[in-house]
Design a protein around this nucleic acid. Structure first.
Length: 861
RNA sequence: GCCGUGGUGGCGGAAUUGGUAGACGCGCAGGACUUAAAAUCCUGUGGUAGCAAUACCGUGCCGGUUCGAUUCCGGCCCUCGGCACCA
């Protein structure tokens, strides 16, 4: 008997499947469609790691099963090749990123192929291909046209190591850059910004229409951070005729505490504009404070110890409800870019305000009290909101005695009526800084004309190709390396014909991933005929990463492919890492909604369902990293055990969404399992004539469980079920018949596509004694067969074990057939006569008998 | 501090409309095969006591509901992830 030696056949099948094109998805097929998507990788110098493997092999198992169940499945891949990782690698190697990216893509592609992922390779994309980023730029122009892209002098996050600006989402809580872990700084700079905040409400609201893993949905909700409240005017004392307005406006979500507002605090940036209101005697200290506060970077303001500082401006305002005169302080704990930049200080019910009031000896008034607790000096408003009993207003004039909820409604109505308040909504979400001062990204397709201002590049001149640059290292001056390319930068204005300069900022690496799942769908376009042939189908790879590939003018691919979008969208299942929940996932939803609004896509949400896979840690339980020396290279695992083992272990290691440490011994166990399958399946025909009834039953149960578990993404228990079956199979004298063996191979196929194909083909050959004719047969491969059926009666008829309990403790058990297990009186009689049970029942009075059909009987004595 | 996850044998984990806790894998122990080792196969494997049948204990901690709780309720501790002066 041959030994199980996966290296002898795995690479063969990769080639055969590729050439036969068995994983191609068909547009407009009459079968129901399933669009299964995983996040496309960025091909840096590192090879794909076991984390990619976890996501890809799991979704591949689903794709394979759905294909077997008669779905028209699309499982595509591409390369997110612009951005910092690729550029940093290129700088390290001293080679232009265009060159290294090409190599890295080739390497990653070879890996994915060797894993046996059932990709439709005709749809491969690359974000750095001009034919692709032409449309990334086109989307930008549309955003510009609709006023959703604008330039603004903004405080940006500057990474001194990567020498570029970053989006808020790319900076971690401790102020470091998520990619390189260096401290970032804040700088003021003119930047392109996308108005994602215009979509805040819809990005939040539409989460209700999609099926996201709850933790993903909640994280998005928190990031968008909607809070409903009130804008409330406080009259300035002694400035009734002021032209800019005679009041200061605060934002509050706790209007029911307004009687407790004993001071107001404004942000330093805001105080700057109120200079003329500040009395002469406090001018000096206030100006000083503002100066110091503004000098501090945002980072310092955030990370320094959170003791509150501030100074009294000398300005007085009137609390519109209590009528009391209150002081206005300036303090840097109030943010200028949230709400109005001014807040009312309610020290009785807000910890920050309380701290501030203590420090500056400001009065504390309690305006809400819990029902039974009479003496308090502070009661957190957050607790009031959750308080189950009644929270009653006190010290609040005519609102005394009302519950907080009641008072809130009445107060809002009164304030709105009087014209001093209005309902408002605020979001934590900020607009998206879209400029990067880097070489390796999509050029922003505009130019600056001294006469006409910002001029978009006309659509028919897209793409604005990234020119070849000798010096692509970041400059550190805040300018892109492109700025040094004077030949490229200096151009003529398409509007007035005068001299103009190109925009030298490029887009962030998120730009290409905003719409890549649409890129996979675009087919049949003339431009697809360029590039190298990918195989027998005659279809070709469309996007080749190359800086000098020619791009001919063409029509709008979006409107031309509308019917294809309608067929495939939305994505049925999208899996990726949790780290992209507030980045890519939110950004791409925003851009997709925009595309929906301008009529190019058929749905308002791109992803019907979003899941995430857990991180794979190193064998020592720590995050894998080179410095820790605990990186597992999938290539080595595959070399030692084969792809099937690698795939099977990735599925078996633990619950899909949970973080798990890699275990080499676990890999070994999966290898042993596959080897046992190999040996058992290779046994001679004489041994495989008929399957025993009990093994038939076990097989039926396994088919059922594996199918259900794949649907539920419980890959680990699906594999465990198959292992269980193999244990039963090993113990069984007869083994599985040919027919049943095939069924088993079919359910194993989504997880271990190579060994099952190899065994399947041997079997087919031995049965038909014909050679495998790939080209002339539609359904030659195991992966083109139908998902096996099982006889539900087999499972139903099985004897079950009925547990006998006395006072809830298990004392014995009896076996019962399918008819018996529902029959209470018979079971009860049997149980009572059971020797072991009798011991406990003897001489005792049975008070109660609890019977759960098919499960247990419990005697309470 | 807030939001979210999770806590089960020596280890990864299984089982929740409340119903035999520990499937499956790893590890370990014993046995078979072998000159020997590796590999493979078989058997056992939560803890305590016992030769054994068996009994008691056992799902982070404390309490509650129930005939019965890993599962439900109340309170607490810890892990990991996210957010964080957001009014």
């Amino acid at each position: 008997m041959e030994k199980y030696n996966p290296s002898e056949f795995e690479s063969k099948w990769v080639k055969v499947w590729d050439e036969a094109g068995i994983y191609k998805a068909k547009d407009f097929d009459s079968k129901p469609k399933k669009y299964i998507l995983f996040e496309f990788p960025y091909p840096s110098g590192e090879r794909l790691h076991v984390g990619h493997g976890r996501s890809y092999t799991a979704l591949d198992a689903m794709a394979r099963k759905y294909r077997m169940q008669g779905y028209n499945v699309l499982l595509p891949i591409g390369w997110d090749a612009f951005g910092l990782p690729a550029e940093n690698y290129a700088i390290k190697m001293g080679v232009n990123p265009a060159v290294t990216t090409k190599e890295n893509v080739a390497n990653a592609k070879a890996q994915v192929k060797s894993w046996g992922v059932s990709i439709d390779w005709d749809r491969e994309i690359n974000t750095t291909d001009p034919k692709y980023y032409k449309w990334t730029q086109w989307i930008f122009l549309k955003l510009l046209e609709k006023g959703l892209a604008y330039q603004s002098e903004v405080a940006v996050n500057w990474c001194p190591f990567c020498k570029t600006n970053l989006a808020d989402e790319e900076v971690l809580a401790d102020g470091t850059h998520e990619r390189c872990s260096n401290q970032t700084e804040r700088r003021m700079q003119k930047q392109w910004v996308l108005k994602i905040t215009a979509y805040a409400e819809r990005l939040l609201e539409d989460l209700k229409t999609v099926n996201y893993l709850p933790k993903i949905r909640i994280q998005q909700e928190n990031w968008i951070g909607k809070s409903e409240g009130v804008h409330l005017k406080f009259e300035l004392k002694g400035h009734p005729e002021r032209s800019e307005g005679s009041s200061l406006t605060v934002f509050t979500t706790a209007i029911d505490t307004v009687f407790g507002a004993t001071f107001m605090v404004i942000a330093p940036e805001y105080a700057q504009n109120l200079h003329e209101l500040i009395p002469a005697n406090s001018q000096k200290t206030v100006t000083e404070y503002i100066k110091n506060a503004l000098k501090k970077s945002e980072l310092e303001r955030q990370t320094q110890d959170k003791t509150k500082t501030g100074v009294d401006t000398g300005i007085k305002v009137i609390n519109p409800l209590s009528g009391k005169e209150i002081p206005v302080f300036v303090a840097d704990y109030v943010l200028s870019n949230y709400g109005t930049g001014a807040v009312m200080g309610v020290p009785g019910h807000d910890t920050r305000d309380f701290e501030f009031a203590q420090k500056y000896s400001l009065p504390v008034i309690i305006v809400i009290k819990p029902e039974e607790n009479e003496v308090i000096d502070f009661w957190d408003y957050n607790k009031i909101k959750e308080y189950r009993g009644k929270s009653i207003l006190i010290n609040s004039g005519k609102y005394d005695g009302m519950t907080a909820k009641e008072a809130k409604e009445k107060l809002v109505n009164e304030l709105v009526e009087k014209g001093i308040g209005e309902k408002t909504v605020n979001f934590h979400l900020r607009d998206w800084v879209f400029s990067r001062q880097h070489y390796w990204g999509e050029p922003i397709p505009v130019l600056h004309c001294p006469k006409c201002g910002i001029v978009p590049i006309p659509e028919d001149q897209l793409p604005v190709k990234l020119p070849y640059v000798e010096k692509y290292q970041p400059t550190g001056t805040g300018e892109s390396p492109l700025a040094q390319m004077t030949d490229w930068v200096n151009t003529t204005c398409p509007k007035c014909g005068g001299p103009a300069k190109r925009e030298t900022d490029t887009m962030p690496n998120w730009a290409g991933s905003n719409w890549y799942f649409l890129g996979y769908l675009i087919t049949g376009h003339p431009e697809r005929s360029e590039g190298s042939s990918s195989g027998v189908s005659g279809r070709t790879v469309w996007y080749i990463p190359s800086l000098d590939s020619s791009v001919s003018p063409q029509n709008d691919i979006f409107s031309e492919n509308k019917d294809i979008f309608e067929y495939w969208m939305p994505v049925d299942l999208y899996n990726g890492g949790m780290e992209h929940t507030t980045l890519h996932l939110l950004y791409s939803r925003f851009i997709y909604k925009f595309l929906y609004d301008i009529g190019v896509v058929p749905t308002s949400e791109p992803y019907a369902r979003r899941t995430s896979h857990g991180m794979v840690l190193g064998p020592n339980g720590e995050k894998m990293s080179k410095s820790r020396g605990n990186v597992i290279n999938p290539d080595e695992t595959i070399k030692a055990y084969g792809s099937d083992t690698f795939r099977l272990y990735e599925s078996f290691m633990g619950p899909f969404d949970q973080t798990i440490a890699w275990s080499e011994e676990g890999v070994e166990g999966c290898y042993r399992f596959l080897r046992r399958v190999w040996v058992l399946a290779s046994q001679g025909d004489a041994l495989r004539n008929q399957t025993s009834q009990s093994l038939k039953r076990a097989l039926a149960k396994t088919i059922k469980k594996v199918g259900e578990d794949i649907d539920k993404m419980k890959f680990n228990t699906a594999v465990a079920a198959m292992m269980e079956l193999v244990n039963a199979w090993t113990a069984d004298k007869n083994g599985l018949s040919n027919e049943d063996l095939k069924k088993f191979l079919l359910i194993l196929a989504p997880f271990a596509p190579f060994i099952t194909e190899e065994l399947w083909q041997r079997d087919v050959e031995s049965l038909n004694s014909g050679n495998l004719d790939v080209k002339n047969s539609n359904r030659w491969s195991i992966h083109q067969q139908s998902w096996p059926k099982f006889d539900p009666k087999l499972i139903e008829d099985e004897e079950t074990i009925i547990v006998i309990q006395v006072n809830g403790k298990v004392r014995s058990q009896i076996r019962a057939g399918s008819k018996m297990r529902e029959a209470r009186s018979e079971i009860e009689a049997l149980a009572k006569s059971n020797d072991r049970v009798l011991k406990y029942l003897e001489g005792k009075e049975i008070k109660k008998v609890i019977f759960v059909p098919g499960k247990l009987i419990n005697f309470v004595i």
